[in-house]
Amino acid sequence: MKKIINGIIYENPILVSTLGLCGALAVTNKVENGIVMSICVLIVLLLSNTIISIIKKLVPENVKIPVFIIIIATLVTIIEILLKKYAPSLYQILGIYIPLIVVNCIILGRAISVASKEKITTSILDGLGVGLGYSLALILLSTIREVLGNNTITLMDNLSAITGYKAIYKVFPNNEIIPLNIFNKQAGAFLTLGILIALAKYIGGKHESN
């Protein structure tokens, strides 16, 4: 339990260690995309941590990184194929950011620093914690961006191909301030994440001084 909370809060991959920002910034214009992306990363992270921790004794030291990259790339390819089959419209939207999970520093970082050293259960829990931390950050980021940029929260739109129904909620019915178009654009992504990280730092700093 401690491991999981550690991954979610104290070592949050996005808000504290600021790793793997590419995908996080690119897909978070809608809550739905953020959720799907974080599920993909969570699955890959969990499986890669498990597999690497199982085979760690078989891998010689000097080919460690290439072997890990191939394992991660294989997992990502599996996710890619599944997504293409069951949710093609979502696959189109997420585009190159799904294959780019391969070079996401979080996954390789966890593989090297945790999975290749610790026991299997510890690695699985660590993967779960960090994956959930990533999801938390992505959901936070995408909710802020979508509410301010579109005045909606989209939980299921393209996903309705799988689940069968749509879920799009309007947030503030009568107001003149939002939608603010900037939050749909790239600049808004950088701005929101910058402020979120500053907030995390502020809270972290207060926590430490207590």
Binding site: K185, Q186, A187, A189, F190, L191, I197, A198, G205
Partner: peptide, 16 residues
């Protein structure tokens, strides 16, 4: 709390 990455992100936002 804005030192380091946060201010870099906000600069990047203006550049974008």
């Amino acid at each position: 709390c804005f030192q380091g990455i946060p201010i870099a992100l906000i600069t990047a936002s203006i550049m974008a």
